[in-house]
Design a protein around this nucleic acid. Structure first.
Lengths: 137, 137
DNA sequence: ATAGATTTGGTACTTTAGTATGAGTTCATT
DNA sequence: AATGAACTCATACTAAAGTACCAAATCTAT
């Protein structure tokens, strides 16, 4: 948030300076009117795009994976892999094949994931994981 | 897409007209320099925000529910309700309680959903449904 | 090197999920 | 009024998921 305030402050100063420069450049006749107007137009267009993009990124960032959250929950690397496979719609047997381990192992991992995500079913675990921003989409 | 082209055409004309107007307003001295520059600045800032917003909406819209897709797949209203409950992480028994019907009925609906979404597990059905943009997130 | 966490895997069991099939009910539409 | 689609429910299965315990191998950091 401090960063935002700083950026807007600098921006405001830059705009004021630009306006003054433009004004005197016009009065003294150093620049053509078209050029000044065009420059101002491009400058503010870019600023508009930039600001809107910042707002947009703030929204979208809420849908990105939160590694800190994964650590906080205590999910191990392997458990998280299994969670990803579950969320992709695979069965225990399929996950076992993908990760080259037995189905028993997957069941153990799955049960641990349920404990850590406080859920009783894989669909519920996936839902919780999304709420905690540790799964994409 | 036609709409986009039309909008940009009109916009280009408006910009040209505005530039010419500004130029002559300045030369004839009808307007102060500050006002013209400020107006141009605001105008292009707004355009910048607008265009960026359009791009953003095109991206985000891919995450909205596609009712046409639901119809195309042939999911009935009840089947879609069950799909939503499944995606929320509820068991067949819980869904039955929420919708005030028997678990048998839910099983029937679930099986029909699987047929229509070409899937064998509820997690897979949920995944497919998201790819088809008929589920949020 | 060793304690602690992770990963792996097994057995035995219970619980859900999912399939197949049939059938009665409701509801909108022709 | 009849037809078809949607909704309902049941029985009887099979298959998959999930639980509870135990135990060995491996990795990791002190």
């Amino acid at each position: 948030m401090k960063k935002t305030i700083l950026i807007f402050g600098v921006l405001a100063l830059a705009i004021l300076a630009l306006l003054q420069l433009s004004k005197y450049a016009l009065i003294t006749g150093d620049l053509k009117i078209e050029l000044v107007i065009g420059g101002i137009a491009i400058f503010f267009f870019v600023i508009g795009v930039f600001i809107q993009k910042r707002l947009r990124n703030d929204e979208v960032s809420s849908q990105e994976i939160d590694q800190k959250q994964i650590d906080a929950i205590g999910l191990s690397k392997r458990e998280y892999e299994v969670l990803l496979e579950m969320a992709s719609g695979y069965s225990n047997k399929e996950i076992a094949a993908h990760l080259f381990v037995s189905e028993s192992t997957i069941k153990t991992h799955v049960s641990n994931v349920f404990l850590k995500l406080d859920s009783k079913r894989r669909t519920q675990a996936i839902q919780r994981a999304k709420e905690l921003h540790i799964l994409p989409f």
